[in-house]
């Protein structure tokens, strides 16, 4: 199973993503330069963290017009799994693949810390192996990770079960002290309505090796692998049914 890790000029977590994915059995990741135009050879797409195009104008504002983004958008619309971490999340919001936006941290400080997130939705392709309420520990490292959505969008996100992760304390309580950036309702990660595009500010890519203090990130990548397997099985059985 092959994952594409998109490299924009200014991406700096591309190597983390590649190493995290390649460290898992059954998964292989390859870099794809942002000037490429096709992702047909890949089963899933990862937009890594960093500062694409120097974060000029707004985070992700210029990266969303990179040539590869056409393929990301069309593949996402066709149902391929797309994961955006940190800057990748910002790019997905700017590209309109995810609702809302990420703005300057409420504290005005760049946060670089370990964060705890509570899994709110366990039937997404990204959180298969994490029952609702599971606490995950990923590092956060960002200056503009405060999630914002207007009241109507927020209502939709909650009603459709699109909020996948919220910042929580070590007891799993959703409290302001656990919120590193001022995100509305402690939102750390959301998916689209179709549930195949997931963006989060924390870094599962930096939490996929015990030596880094957490292996929870691997759960996200493994879950994606299971999700792709399951959808392949469904497609295959549909095909068999059609042939029969």
């Amino acid at each position: 199973m092959k994952f594409a890790v998109i490299q924009f000029p200014g991406s700096n977590c591309d190597q983390d993503c590649l190493a995290a994915i390649n460290g898992l059995d059954g998964l292989r990741a390859e870099y794809v330069w942002h000037k490429e135009t096709s992702l047909d050879d890949f089963d899933a797409i990862v937009l890594p963290g960093g500062f694409a195009y120097g974060d000029y104008l707004r985070c992700g504002a210029i990266a969303r017009f990179s040539p590869i983004m056409r393929a990301v958008v069309s593949d996402a619309r066709a149902g391929k799994l797309v994961l955006g971490t940190c800057n990748g999340f910002q790019v997905l919001c700017e590209a309109g693949l995810l609702p809302g936006a990420l703005v300057r941290n409420r504290s005005l400080r760049f946060v670089c810390d370990m964060a705890t997130m509570r899994v709110e939705v366990d039937d997404s392709p990204f959180t298969h192996g994490c029952p609702k309420g599971t606490l995950l520990r990923f590092p956060v490292a960002h200056g503009e990770g405060c999630f914002f959505a207007d009241a109507e969008t927020l209502r939709d996100l909650n009603a459709n079960g699109q909020v996948i992760l919220r910042y929580a304390d070590s007891q799993g309580r959703i409290v302001p002290e656990a919120n590193p950036n001022g995100s509305i309702e402690n939102i750390a990660g959301i998916c689209n309505r179709e549930r195949n595009v997931f963006g989060l500010m924390p870094h599962p890519d930096r939490a996929s090796d015990a030596r880094l203090g957490s292996v929870d990130g691997a759960k996200i990548f493994r879950s994606m692998m299971q999700g792709i397997d399951a959808s392949r099985a469904t497609t295959a059985s549909k095909h068999i049914a059609k042939v029969a």
Binding site: V103, N105, R106, L108, D150, G182
Partner: peptide
């Protein structure tokens, strides 16, 4: 300009 509903911590500082 940031919309009225969007917090502007820079402006507040």
């Amino acid at each position: 300009m940031p919309k009225a509903a969007v917090l502007d911590p820079q402006g507040n500082a």
